[in-house]
Structure formats: structure tokens, C-alpha cells
Design a protein around this nucleic acid. Structure first.
Lengths: 97, 97
DNA sequence: TGCTTATATCGTTACATGACGATGAAACGG
DNA sequence: CCGTTTCATCGTCATGTAACGATATAAGCA
């Protein structure tokens, strides 16, 4: 994964609310829509929607229209790539010990 | 690790230049000072120093004074904690599959 | 068609960030 | 001591971000 993309994903996760949103989406066994997320947070719907957009653009989640609702699911492959890139980063760091 | 701290580290790494700086520091077998880093980047010294400060405040690196120079080394423990927290995050994510 | 629901987007405000040049500070070396 | 080196910090500017309320859009339902 290129640095630019890795940095984008890092930045997307570089906000407590977005970490939270990712966990909320992950924890739902059923569909997870914007209202579900908003209900878990002390933030306005528009603010939550904005955070979701950041996660979308980072490729960490995916949108799926279901009727009038938009549901979100994790992009497992992308997250795995992310994790591996990070492992490579810290791995090479640890080699220098 | 608390979300706030995790998000701070993510944000610190959420910039290509800072990813680069971390790698530069990691790759040096000898002391790594600000000038060394600046030499590797097309940025002003003040800009590099500012980026280094972000990494410092996130606890990813540590400063050690050596004469007139300030040298930087990785905080391996913190980086390991970071990696583990992330593993926990994605791990729980993957469980939902 | 017209209403409701769910959500994205817009417009705004306050504040943070990234970049630079210039300046200040701390530790040598003469 | 005084100059040099090395680096952090300051001041500044342009741009980005986070938050909100208000509005627009798109799909379903009556």
C-alpha cells in the first residue's frame, strides 16, 4: 500500500468518533444505517454523516442502499491490507532494535 | 489503550511526511538528528521540526540531547501497544464476518 | 401524486494544520 | 566570552476540519 493511501486511512481513523463509528458498525450483526450510528453518539445526524463520509472515502467501509436507508459494512479486505501495511511499518521499525 | 490516545497516534501517522520521518528514524543505525531527517526531505527545517514534534507528542519517538544536537529514537513499547490496539480493533472487526 | 422517512449536502463558524522565513536558545569550540 | 552550529519556536498565511442547523434528494407508502 502506498504511503499516501496508508496516511489517508490513518487520518480517517485519527479521530475518536470515527474509531467509535467503525466499532459500532463492526458490532452490529444486522444492517447498520446512519440513524443507528447517530443514536449511539451525542452528535447531530449531519455530523455523523460527515464522519461516515470520511470513512467511506478512506475505503474503510462501503455503502449499500436498502430502501430509504443507506447501510454500511466494513471493507474487510482493505482493513486487512491496512493492518498488514502497519505491521510492515512497525516490523521494520522493530528490526532496528 | 484509550481511544483518545489511539486516535492521537493515528492522526500523527496520518500524514505521508510523518510516515516517512518515522521510517527514516527507524532506518538509521546511528543517531538521527533533525538535520539528518531534513536532508532526506524537500522541506524546510522548521517544517520538519514541526512534524517531529507531532510524533514526539504522540509518544511515537523520544528526544535525546547529544551536545548541540537533538537525536530521536523510536518508542518501541508505545509502537507495540499501538500495533496491538489496532490488532484488537481489526480483530474484533473481522470476528463479525 | 403527495407525504414521510432517512440521509446526504450546503452554508456557516470556530479552530486546527501545514508550510515558510525569521528569530531565539542551548551547547560546544576557540 | 564570542561565534557557530543545531534546533525549537514564533508569526504568518492559506487551507482543512469539526461541529451545527437548514435544506435538498431519493425511496417507499398512502
Amino acid at each position: 500500500m502506498q504511503d499516501e493511501e496508508l496516511a489517508n486511512m490513518m487520518r480517517a481513523l485519527g479521530h475518536p468518533v470515527r474509531l467509535n463509528i467503525l466499532r459500532i458498525i463492526a458490532a452490529r450483526t444486522r444492517d447498520c444505517c446512519c440513524a443507528d450510528v447517530t443514536q449511539c453518539l451525542p452528535l447531530a445526524q449531519s455530523t455523523v454523516s460527515q464522519h461516515i463520509k470520511v470513512l467511506l472515502e478512506a475505503g474503510l467501509i462501503e455503502r449499500r442502499s436498502k430502501g430509504t436507508r443507506n447501510c454500511y459494512v466494513l471493507m474487510h479486505e482493505k482493513i486487512l491490507l491496512f493492518e498488514n501495511s502497519l505491521g510492515g511499518l512497525t516490523g521494520s521499525l522493530l528490526e532496528t532494535e
